[in-house]
Design a binder for these strands. Sequence first.
DNA 1: CAAGGGACTGAATCCAGGC
DNA 2: GGCCTGGATTCAGTCCCTT
Lengths: 367, 367
Amino acid sequence: MTDPLRTNRIYQGDSIEVMRSLPSASIDMIFADPPYNMMLGGELLRPDNSRVDGVDDEWDRFESQRAYAEFTRSWLREARRLLKDNGTIWVIGSYHNIYRVGAELQDLGFWTLNDVVWRKANPMPNFKGTRFTNAHETLLWCAKSAEARYTFNYEAMKSLNEGLQMRSDWTLPLCNGKERLKAEDGKKVHPTQKPESLLYRVILSSTHPGDIILDPFFGTGTTGAVAKLLGRQWIGLERDEAYIAAARQRIAQVEPIKDLRLLITPSKKSEPRIPFGTVVERGLLAPGSLLCDSQRRWTAKVRADGTLVATSSHGDHRGSIHQVGAAVQGAPACNGWTFWHIDRPGGAVPIDVLRQQVRAELEACAL
Amino acid sequence: MTDPLRTNRIYQGDSIEVMRSLPSASIDMIFADPPYNMMLGGELLRPDNSRVDGVDDEWDRFESQRAYAEFTRSWLREARRLLKDNGTIWVIGSYHNIYRVGAELQDLGFWTLNDVVWRKANPMPNFKGTRFTNAHETLLWCAKSAEARYTFNYEAMKSLNEGLQMRSDWTLPLCNGKERLKAEDGKKVHPTQKPESLLYRVILSSTHPGDIILDPFFGTGTTGAVAKLLGRQWIGLERDEAYIAAARQRIAQVEPIKDLRLLITPSKKSEPRIPFGTVVERGLLAPGSLLCDSQRRWTAKVRADGTLVATSSHGDHRGSIHQVGAAVQGAPACNGWTFWHIDRPGGAVPIDVLRQQVRAELEACAL
DNA sequence: CAAGGGACTGAATCCAGGC
DNA sequence: GGCCTGGATTCAGTCCCTT
């Protein structure tokens, strides 16, 4: 193609078809949030009988796993053609699709730089208690080859992380509140709008100001909004007219900023909560160990799941260190960390020292 | 095979070959930490044990990627055969191999339950500052099919996390200090020894005491050590004599927890079911008694057969405590045990206390 | 106005056992 | 295997309304 690439605009149409019309080796970075192929079953009710609004949109339905694999290979192949040799691609997904995406990326010759975990601060719980709470999504970050000289703004990431190297796990909240785009009827415009904080990190880490960023599954334009904010060029591909209208309006309101320091929001550092179970799990205290209070009036036995069992004049008790501490004393509440002790040669030591030990180990990973 | 499966031992030899000699549908859970030295100069063996040269030109990279895929498919296929229908498999890996593993798992028909992120508390920094610090590894947890009734000790995980649902991201330290096995020369025995805390969570979450756990890449036996501690049976496959010797010595020193009460976290789902009719039958509630909800918005009358009758704005209702509770509220479902109350001097009391009473009586009987 | 309670919501492969 | 029914199951955060 001889046409110059026109940026800062949305191209309407099927992603793969529009990509085919764009010139090769013209893009610095691609961020892609493709359909996940969730395959949800029937409806899901919360314990209060309200209905979970799942992703059942037409664009997330594929005929088979094979069809999804072919779709993935097709758009990734075009993405590879559009990327400059030193460009990189980000793809976000969940366990439903990210393993297929990762395998196809590697088959096509992409070179993985990192896989990054978006650790959701406030995920939806598992209402039926059937699995671990699905509390993260995965991003893959790849170059076109092992030899590529890709962009990585190491210092920007380090300062964003208060002077420590940015790790491959990012703790960020979901997109909700005022940031979440709502239609006039109050309903969310897009079922899976990504938080801008996520795109900040992606764009800030792997592009320079002025670079051209392509998002082939543009949705309501989070990539475009953050790209404009950060002084990058952007191109969005999207099929849905309603999404496009919302994205245009949203991006028009963005005022680009030049001073990156304004973006660095200090991370909320709070003392990490340490469940007592962690102390047991890490082998600092064996299941079956005996605890006692400082006066040795009561004893309790440690269970494998981090609860205690004890017997007192009030009966048998089972529960957390706090619950059992309160129960044996007949008290309304109790701080189990300072109440319960372990017998050591020099005397009884509160189990809080074990918590301190765990905290010390954890201090290395700040976020 | 007609031989009974002999557990709590290490089988020496090639993983895939030894797996072929074991009986189908005999394993409750598999934990696998397969090799993933794809292009790091380490050796990679094809399924036929021939060696792949680690050269990094395009052709050879393709060869070794394909060889790794074949290796992965081979051992996963055997793993699938060995698993009981309701068994599950855990596989741990990094971005070098886990996407290939995940794709092969799904191709073979495994059903993903969770992907779990091990967030390393103390990862190795990225010395060159060229990427994000690689601070996590990924575990995949799969059942054999979507319909399988797999084991998940929800309550134990919740207790371990001090009353909150366990999430899909686990922050745990690397294996070091006293736990790390060292040879006489002070060098580590195994390059990638996993922390026992990781296996503790894996085993406690997805197996029952007495279950049979297979680790086809046993190494220095972390899986065996934790399995023994937690009262599970184990089988380890390993080729390397030095690893086997270290594992044997290590596991011999583990003292198992014998007391089942310390190992099992009771859950409501596992308690014996009591029909409401039993409560009436035993005279804890007379036919004709009036029940109400906690807000006293609705009332219902107890019939001799343990059903209820009630009238609401939705009409007349007759049926089980659950059905009538749902009907008067116009809700899709209802737990009648906690919804319906009896009027007592101190206030309304849920009929669940009557169920507890019956359970206590039955338990006394059983002893 | 501050504090507190209740409703609502988020990429979700979300039940188990008996007949 | 299909159908029916008992009955178990949620965390963090925002917004609105009441006290």
